[in-house]
Protein backbone atom coordinates (compact mmCIF):
# COMPACT_ATOMS: atom_id res chain seq x y z
CA UNK A 1 0.00 0.00 0.00
CA UNK A 2 1.48 3.36 -0.95
CA UNK A 3 0.26 6.92 -0.69
CA UNK A 4 0.47 7.17 -4.47
CA UNK A 5 -2.96 5.51 -4.61
CA UNK A 6 -4.38 8.66 -2.99
CA UNK A 7 -3.06 10.87 -5.79
CA UNK A 8 -4.12 8.40 -8.50
CA UNK A 9 -7.57 8.16 -6.95
CA UNK A 10 -8.02 11.93 -6.65
CA UNK A 11 -7.02 12.43 -10.28
CA UNK A 12 -9.40 9.77 -11.58
CA UNK A 13 -12.02 11.07 -9.16
CA UNK A 14 -11.96 14.61 -10.56
CA UNK A 15 -12.88 13.31 -14.03
CA UNK A 16 -15.67 11.17 -12.58
CA UNK A 17 -16.87 14.03 -10.38
CA UNK A 18 -17.04 16.57 -13.22
CA UNK A 19 -18.88 14.07 -15.41
CA UNK A 20 -21.26 13.16 -12.60
CA UNK A 21 -22.32 16.81 -12.10
CA UNK A 22 -23.97 16.88 -15.53
CA UNK A 23 -25.55 13.50 -14.92
CA UNK A 24 -26.95 14.46 -11.53
CA UNK A 25 -28.36 17.74 -12.92
CA UNK A 26 -30.13 16.10 -15.88
CA UNK A 27 -31.32 13.39 -13.52
CA UNK A 28 -32.92 15.83 -11.09
CA UNK A 29 -34.12 18.52 -13.52
CA UNK A 30 -35.09 16.50 -16.62
CA UNK A 31 -35.96 13.53 -14.44
CA UNK A 32 -34.36 10.66 -16.30
CA UNK A 33 -31.19 8.58 -15.99
CA UNK A 34 -29.30 9.65 -19.10
CA UNK A 35 -27.28 6.76 -20.53
CA UNK A 36 -25.83 9.01 -23.26
CA UNK A 37 -23.99 11.15 -20.73
CA UNK A 38 -20.83 9.02 -20.87
CA UNK A 39 -20.77 9.45 -24.62
CA UNK A 40 -20.91 13.23 -24.21
CA UNK A 41 -17.51 12.91 -22.49
CA UNK A 42 -16.15 10.89 -25.39
CA UNK A 43 -17.65 13.22 -28.01
CA UNK A 44 -16.28 16.25 -26.16
CA UNK A 45 -12.81 14.72 -26.20
CA UNK A 46 -12.97 13.80 -29.90
CA UNK A 47 -14.43 17.15 -30.95
CA UNK A 48 -11.67 18.96 -29.05
CA UNK A 49 -9.10 16.64 -30.60
CA UNK A 50 -10.39 17.41 -34.10
CA UNK A 51 -10.43 21.17 -33.49
CA UNK A 52 -6.93 20.99 -32.06
CA UNK A 53 -5.72 19.02 -35.08
CA UNK A 54 -7.38 21.53 -37.41
CA UNK A 55 -5.86 24.45 -35.51
CA UNK A 56 -2.45 22.79 -35.61
CA UNK A 57 -2.70 22.48 -39.39
CA UNK A 58 -4.01 26.00 -39.84
CA UNK A 59 -1.54 28.01 -37.81
CA UNK A 60 1.29 25.56 -37.21
CA UNK A 61 3.81 28.37 -37.43
CA UNK A 62 2.34 30.15 -34.39
CA UNK A 63 3.52 27.40 -32.06
CA UNK A 64 0.10 26.06 -31.03
CA UNK A 65 1.71 22.90 -29.73
CA UNK A 66 4.77 24.44 -28.05
CA UNK A 67 4.33 23.44 -24.39
CA UNK A 68 3.04 26.16 -22.08
CA UNK A 69 5.24 26.40 -18.97
CA UNK A 70 5.44 23.05 -17.18
CA UNK A 71 2.45 21.57 -19.04
CA UNK A 72 2.49 19.11 -21.93
CA UNK A 73 0.27 21.13 -24.28
CA UNK A 74 0.47 24.48 -26.06
CA UNK A 75 -2.09 27.31 -26.20
CA UNK A 76 -3.89 25.42 -28.93
CA UNK A 77 -5.50 23.06 -26.42
CA UNK A 78 -7.31 25.61 -24.23
CA UNK A 79 -8.61 27.32 -27.38
CA UNK A 80 -9.71 23.99 -28.84
CA UNK A 81 -11.33 23.08 -25.54
CA UNK A 82 -13.51 26.19 -25.65
CA UNK A 83 -14.61 25.40 -29.21
CA UNK A 84 -15.03 21.74 -28.22
CA UNK A 85 -17.29 22.72 -25.32
CA UNK A 86 -19.43 24.80 -27.69
CA UNK A 87 -19.73 21.90 -30.14
CA UNK A 88 -20.59 19.42 -27.36
CA UNK A 89 -23.30 21.78 -26.14
CA UNK A 90 -24.70 21.99 -29.68
CA UNK A 91 -24.66 18.19 -29.89
CA UNK A 92 -26.68 17.76 -26.69
CA UNK A 93 -29.10 20.53 -27.71
CA UNK A 94 -29.66 18.80 -31.04
CA UNK A 95 -30.22 15.47 -29.30
CA UNK A 96 -32.68 17.09 -26.90
CA UNK A 97 -34.54 18.75 -29.77
CA UNK A 98 -34.70 15.61 -31.92
CA UNK A 99 -35.26 12.96 -29.27
CA UNK A 100 -35.65 13.73 -25.58
CA UNK A 101 -37.66 16.94 -26.03
CA UNK A 102 -40.14 15.23 -28.34
CA UNK A 103 -40.64 12.35 -25.95
CA UNK A 104 -41.04 14.80 -23.05
CA UNK A 105 -43.67 16.82 -24.89
CA UNK A 106 -45.57 13.64 -25.74
CA UNK A 107 -45.67 12.95 -22.02
CA UNK A 108 -43.71 9.72 -22.40
CA UNK A 109 -42.84 7.77 -19.27
CA UNK A 110 -39.42 8.55 -17.79
CA UNK A 111 -38.41 4.97 -18.45
CA UNK A 112 -39.14 5.36 -22.21
CA UNK A 113 -36.79 8.36 -22.25
CA UNK A 114 -34.17 6.27 -20.42
CA UNK A 115 -34.57 3.62 -23.11
CA UNK A 116 -34.21 6.20 -25.88
CA UNK A 117 -31.04 7.47 -24.22
CA UNK A 118 -29.75 3.89 -24.18
CA UNK A 119 -30.37 3.56 -27.94
CA UNK A 120 -28.86 6.97 -28.67
CA UNK A 121 -25.81 6.11 -26.59
CA UNK A 122 -25.10 2.98 -28.65
CA UNK A 123 -25.54 4.96 -31.87
CA UNK A 124 -23.34 7.89 -30.75
CA UNK A 125 -20.56 5.61 -29.53
CA UNK A 126 -20.50 3.51 -32.67
CA UNK A 127 -20.55 6.64 -34.79
CA UNK A 128 -17.34 7.72 -33.04
CA UNK A 129 -15.85 4.33 -33.78
CA UNK A 130 -16.85 4.69 -37.43
CA UNK A 131 -15.44 8.21 -37.82
CA UNK A 132 -12.24 7.89 -35.79
CA UNK A 133 -11.75 4.05 -35.71
CA UNK A 134 -11.22 2.18 -32.45
CA UNK A 135 -7.49 3.07 -32.23
CA UNK A 136 -6.65 5.23 -29.22
CA UNK A 137 -5.62 8.83 -29.91
CA UNK A 138 -3.69 11.38 -27.89
CA UNK A 139 -4.04 15.13 -27.33
CA UNK A 140 -0.32 15.49 -26.81
CA UNK A 141 2.77 13.42 -27.46
CA UNK A 142 4.94 15.24 -24.92
CA UNK A 143 6.35 13.19 -22.05
CA UNK A 144 6.04 14.57 -18.54
CA UNK A 145 8.07 13.86 -15.45
CA UNK A 146 6.02 13.25 -12.29
CA UNK A 147 7.23 15.69 -9.62
CA UNK A 148 7.64 14.45 -6.03
CA UNK A 149 5.02 15.84 -3.61
CA UNK A 150 6.28 14.27 -0.39
CA UNK A 151 5.34 11.00 1.38
CA UNK A 152 6.44 9.17 -1.74
CA UNK A 153 3.63 10.68 -3.82
CA UNK A 154 4.21 11.99 -7.32
CA UNK A 155 2.10 13.84 -9.86
CA UNK A 156 2.69 15.48 -13.23
CA UNK A 157 1.91 19.20 -13.70
CA UNK A 158 -0.98 18.20 -16.01
CA UNK A 159 -2.50 16.08 -13.26
CA UNK A 160 -2.23 18.87 -10.69
CA UNK A 161 -3.80 21.25 -13.21
CA UNK A 162 -6.85 19.01 -13.64
CA UNK A 163 -7.36 18.86 -9.87
CA UNK A 164 -7.09 22.67 -9.63
CA UNK A 165 -9.39 23.27 -12.60
CA UNK A 166 -12.00 20.91 -11.15
CA UNK A 167 -11.94 22.73 -7.82
CA UNK A 168 -12.43 26.12 -9.52
CA UNK A 169 -15.27 24.85 -11.73
CA UNK A 170 -17.10 23.18 -8.85
CA UNK A 171 -16.92 26.24 -6.59
CA UNK A 172 -18.07 28.54 -9.42
CA UNK A 173 -20.94 26.24 -10.35
CA UNK A 174 -22.06 25.84 -6.77
CA UNK A 175 -22.12 29.64 -6.36
CA UNK A 176 -24.14 29.90 -9.59
CA UNK A 177 -26.72 27.37 -8.42
CA UNK A 178 -27.08 28.75 -4.90
CA UNK A 179 -26.73 32.53 -5.48
CA UNK A 180 -28.28 33.46 -8.87
CA UNK A 181 -31.92 33.66 -10.01
CA UNK A 182 -31.21 31.04 -12.68
CA UNK A 183 -29.79 28.69 -10.05
CA UNK A 184 -32.89 29.16 -7.91
CA UNK A 185 -35.07 28.46 -10.95
CA UNK A 186 -33.14 25.25 -11.58
CA UNK A 187 -33.67 24.09 -8.03
CA UNK A 188 -37.35 24.98 -8.27
CA UNK A 189 -37.80 22.92 -11.45
CA UNK A 190 -36.02 19.99 -9.87
CA UNK A 191 -38.42 20.17 -6.91
CA UNK A 192 -41.61 20.46 -8.94
CA UNK A 193 -41.64 21.37 -12.66
CA UNK A 194 -45.39 22.02 -12.90
CA UNK A 195 -45.43 24.31 -9.88
CA UNK A 196 -42.30 26.11 -11.11
CA UNK A 197 -44.04 26.70 -14.46
CA UNK A 198 -47.15 28.06 -12.75
CA UNK A 199 -44.97 30.39 -10.71
CA UNK A 200 -43.65 31.92 -13.94
CA UNK A 201 -40.32 30.15 -14.30
CA UNK A 202 -39.41 29.46 -17.91
CA UNK A 203 -38.96 25.70 -17.73
CA UNK A 204 -37.60 25.53 -21.29
CA UNK A 205 -34.81 27.96 -20.41
CA UNK A 206 -33.94 25.98 -17.31
CA UNK A 207 -33.72 22.82 -19.41
CA UNK A 208 -31.43 24.60 -21.88
CA UNK A 209 -29.12 25.82 -19.12
CA UNK A 210 -29.03 22.32 -17.64
CA UNK A 211 -27.83 20.87 -20.95
CA UNK A 212 -25.27 23.67 -21.35
CA UNK A 213 -23.76 23.01 -17.90
CA UNK A 214 -23.90 19.23 -18.27
CA UNK A 215 -22.43 19.14 -21.77
CA UNK A 216 -19.77 21.74 -20.99
CA UNK A 217 -18.51 19.87 -17.92
CA UNK A 218 -18.73 16.54 -19.79
CA UNK A 219 -16.46 17.97 -22.49
CA UNK A 220 -13.97 19.26 -19.89
CA UNK A 221 -13.99 15.88 -18.13
CA UNK A 222 -13.52 14.04 -21.43
CA UNK A 223 -10.60 16.25 -22.43
CA UNK A 224 -8.99 15.83 -18.98
CA UNK A 225 -9.28 12.09 -19.25
CA UNK A 226 -7.95 12.27 -22.82
CA UNK A 227 -5.01 14.40 -21.72
CA UNK A 228 -4.07 12.15 -18.79
CA UNK A 229 -4.88 8.76 -20.32
CA UNK A 230 -6.01 8.49 -23.93
CA UNK A 231 -9.03 9.06 -26.16
CA UNK A 232 -11.05 6.01 -27.22
CA UNK A 233 -14.62 5.66 -28.54
CA UNK A 234 -15.47 3.55 -25.47
CA UNK A 235 -13.95 5.96 -22.91
CA UNK A 236 -17.34 7.43 -22.06
CA UNK A 237 -19.08 4.09 -21.88
CA UNK A 238 -16.42 2.79 -19.49
CA UNK A 239 -16.97 5.85 -17.28
CA UNK A 240 -20.77 5.59 -17.29
CA UNK A 241 -21.12 3.22 -14.34
CA UNK A 242 -18.69 5.25 -12.15
CA UNK A 243 -20.66 8.38 -13.14
CA UNK A 244 -23.99 6.86 -12.10
CA UNK A 245 -22.49 5.45 -8.91
CA UNK A 246 -21.02 8.87 -8.04
CA UNK A 247 -24.29 10.70 -8.73
CA UNK A 248 -26.31 8.26 -6.60
CA UNK A 249 -23.69 8.11 -3.85
CA UNK A 250 -23.66 11.92 -3.63
CA UNK A 251 -27.44 12.11 -3.75
CA UNK A 252 -29.26 12.82 -7.02
CA UNK A 253 -29.37 16.58 -7.66
CA UNK A 254 -26.51 17.53 -5.37
CA UNK A 255 -23.51 19.14 -7.09
CA UNK A 256 -21.07 18.87 -4.15
CA UNK A 257 -22.42 15.35 -3.66
CA UNK A 258 -21.58 14.37 -7.22
CA UNK A 259 -18.01 15.64 -6.84
CA UNK A 260 -17.46 13.98 -3.47
CA UNK A 261 -19.05 10.82 -4.84
CA UNK A 262 -16.68 10.97 -7.82
CA UNK A 263 -13.65 11.39 -5.55
CA UNK A 264 -14.73 8.50 -3.33
CA UNK A 265 -15.17 6.23 -6.37
CA UNK A 266 -11.82 7.35 -7.80
CA UNK A 267 -10.08 6.61 -4.50
CA UNK A 268 -11.87 3.28 -4.05
CA UNK A 269 -10.79 2.27 -7.56
CA UNK A 270 -7.17 3.25 -6.93
CA UNK A 271 -7.02 1.23 -3.69
CA UNK A 272 -8.83 -1.72 -5.27
CA UNK A 273 -6.23 -1.76 -8.05
CA UNK A 274 -3.49 -2.00 -5.41
CA UNK A 275 -5.24 -4.72 -3.43
CA UNK A 276 -7.02 -6.87 -6.04
CA UNK A 277 -5.25 -5.93 -9.27
CA UNK A 278 -6.15 -3.70 -12.21
CA UNK A 279 -8.43 -6.26 -13.83
CA UNK A 280 -11.08 -5.69 -11.14
CA UNK A 281 -11.09 -1.87 -11.33
CA UNK A 282 -14.32 -1.67 -13.31
CA UNK A 283 -16.19 -3.66 -10.65
CA UNK A 284 -15.56 -1.10 -7.88
CA UNK A 285 -18.27 1.31 -9.00
CA UNK A 286 -20.79 -1.54 -8.98
CA UNK A 287 -19.88 -2.54 -5.43
CA UNK A 288 -20.20 1.09 -4.29
CA UNK A 289 -23.56 1.37 -6.05
CA UNK A 290 -24.90 -1.78 -4.38
CA UNK A 291 -23.71 -0.61 -0.97
CA UNK A 292 -25.37 2.79 -1.38
CA UNK A 293 -28.66 1.21 -2.50
CA UNK A 294 -28.55 -1.17 0.47
CA UNK A 295 -27.55 1.32 3.16
CA UNK A 296 -28.71 4.76 2.08
CA UNK A 297 -30.54 4.89 -1.29
CA UNK A 298 -30.93 8.69 -1.08
CA UNK A 299 -27.15 9.11 -1.09
CA UNK A 300 -24.96 11.26 1.11
CA UNK A 301 -26.65 14.61 0.41
CA UNK A 302 -29.91 13.52 -1.18
CA UNK A 303 -33.41 14.35 -0.03
CA UNK A 304 -35.74 11.44 0.58
CA UNK A 305 -38.06 11.29 -2.43
Amino acid sequence: MSFQAIIDGLIAGTTIGLGAIGLTLTYSILRFANFTHGDFLAWGAYLTLSVSGFLGGLVASLGVTTPLGPFSFGWGLPVSLIIGITLTILLTMALDKLLFGRLRRRGADAIIIVMASFGASMALRSLLEFIYTANPQYLTRELQIAEPLGLGMRATPDQLLTIGLTAVLVVALNLFVTRTPMGRAMRAVSENPALAGVYGIEVQRVIRVTWIIGAGLACVAGVMSGLLVQIRPYMGFDLLLPLFAAAILGGVGSIPGAVIGGLIIGLAEAFAVQIFGAEWRAGVAFIVLVLVLLVRPTGLFGRPS
Binding site: L99, R102, L103, A108, I112, M115, A116, G119, A120, S121, M122, A123, L124, R125, S126, L127, E129, F130, T133, A134
Partner: peptide, 20 residues
Protein backbone atom coordinates in the same frame (compact mmCIF):
# COMPACT_ATOMS: atom_id res chain seq x y z
CA UNK B 1 -14.53 -3.54 -38.16
CA UNK B 2 -15.17 0.10 -38.88
CA UNK B 3 -18.12 -0.61 -41.16
CA UNK B 4 -19.57 -3.00 -38.59
CA UNK B 5 -19.92 -0.07 -36.19
CA UNK B 6 -22.31 1.47 -38.75
CA UNK B 7 -24.58 -1.54 -38.19
CA UNK B 8 -24.88 -0.54 -34.55
CA UNK B 9 -25.54 3.08 -35.47
CA UNK B 10 -28.39 1.98 -37.73
CA UNK B 11 -29.96 -0.22 -35.05
CA UNK B 12 -29.59 2.54 -32.45
CA UNK B 13 -31.22 5.13 -34.69
CA UNK B 14 -33.96 2.62 -35.57
CA UNK B 15 -34.65 2.05 -31.86
CA UNK B 16 -34.98 5.80 -31.24
CA UNK B 17 -37.20 6.34 -34.30
CA UNK B 18 -39.49 3.50 -33.22
CA UNK B 19 -39.78 4.95 -29.72
CA UNK B 20 -40.71 8.28 -31.34
Amino acid sequence: ARAASLQIVVIGVMLCLLLL
